[in-house]
Computed example of a mutant assay.
Amino acid sequence: MSNIDPFEVVESEAIPGAVLEVVQYKALKGSDDLDVAEKVFFANQAEIHLKMIRVKLDRSELLIEPGALYFMKGSLQLESTTQGGIAKGLMRKFMTGETLFQSRIKGTGEIYLEPSFGHYLLFNIDNDALVFDKGAFHCATATLEVSALMQKNVSSALFGGEGFFQTQVKGSGIVVLNSPVPVSELLMYELAAGEKLSVDGNFALVRTAGVSFQAEKSGKSLFQSVTSGEGLLQTFTGPGMVWIAPTQGVYNKMKMADSIANLSHPEGSMGTRT
């Protein structure tokens, strides 16, 4: 049996005591089941890679969602925690969709989380906070606090498409989020104070906590908003950074019947769900 690492590192972030990596198999070699082998063949042809989050701890700690652990080796201990107490845990669960309990792995060793064909985002934040969609959290160094954040205005809660609460991580450390698109297809905008970014759809993934969010009419009046065909827009106002995934909506449409024909001759839509 070969000891050669079968993975290639796609992305990596490090802080004292922890290295978090997105690793992927260079290619899957197939299966003894012909149906599975056929799917593996097309996945390889389309360059769709099986990925995992690999974490190397050195007398440090990692927070993960329960059930996310795949395997680990070393002097490591796994325990459950509400991270901040029952009250904060309940708030996180019922308001953002995250679990009440989180698993904490501490010690020295190597951790692998559940494999996926999906995509991951790594953020190394320094005394800052990130706000993101419900269910996007994957794991984080235990130096970060994961909590629920209530929308600051009624328009964003009722018409922004994100609900009354989103998830926030704050502090200093590394957080890994699930992404609907590859990292290379994301756009990051740094907004100056008072500068706006308006998005017709629910594809703004992450923002720094200093960016305010609300749903606004696309025109100066309701009549202009209706006749413009855009309806309500998700509006982000600086200062801070916003990450958006313009291709997310395209991939969602491609899952539907007659998707290619509709994309070839789009009729336009009001992308922000209400």
Rank of each mutant, 00 (worst) to 15 (best):
A140G: 04
K51P: 12
R92H: 05
V169Y: 01
T167V: 10
Q102H: 11
F213Y: 15
L76M: 07
L63R: 07
A136K: 01
E267R: 14
I174C: 00
V22R: 11
G173L: 06
A192N: 12
I111M: 05
F164H: 04
L100C: 12
S218V: 01
A136P: 00
S198C: 13
D32E: 07
S264C: 10
F117E: 08
T227F: 13
S31C: 07
G67Y: 08
K217Y: 10
G210Y: 02
I244K: 03
E185M: 07
Q102N: 09
K26V: 11
D258R: 14
S31N: 12
T108K: 10
S80N: 09
W243F: 05
E13L: 13
A68S: 12
D133M: 08
W243T: 08
Q102K: 11
F101I: 02
A257L: 13
K134P: 03
E21M: 15
E65T: 13
N262T: 09
F132S: 00
L222M: 08
V183A: 10
I64R: 06
M95V: 01
S12C: 15
F165S: 09
M150S: 15
T247D: 06
M188N: 01
F41T: 12
K255N: 12
A193E: 13
I111H: 02
M52A: 14
K255H: 15
M188Y: 00
R104N: 01
G118Y: 08
F132Q: 01
A215P: 02
G219P: 01
Y120L: 10
S116A: 12
I64G: 06
T272C: 11
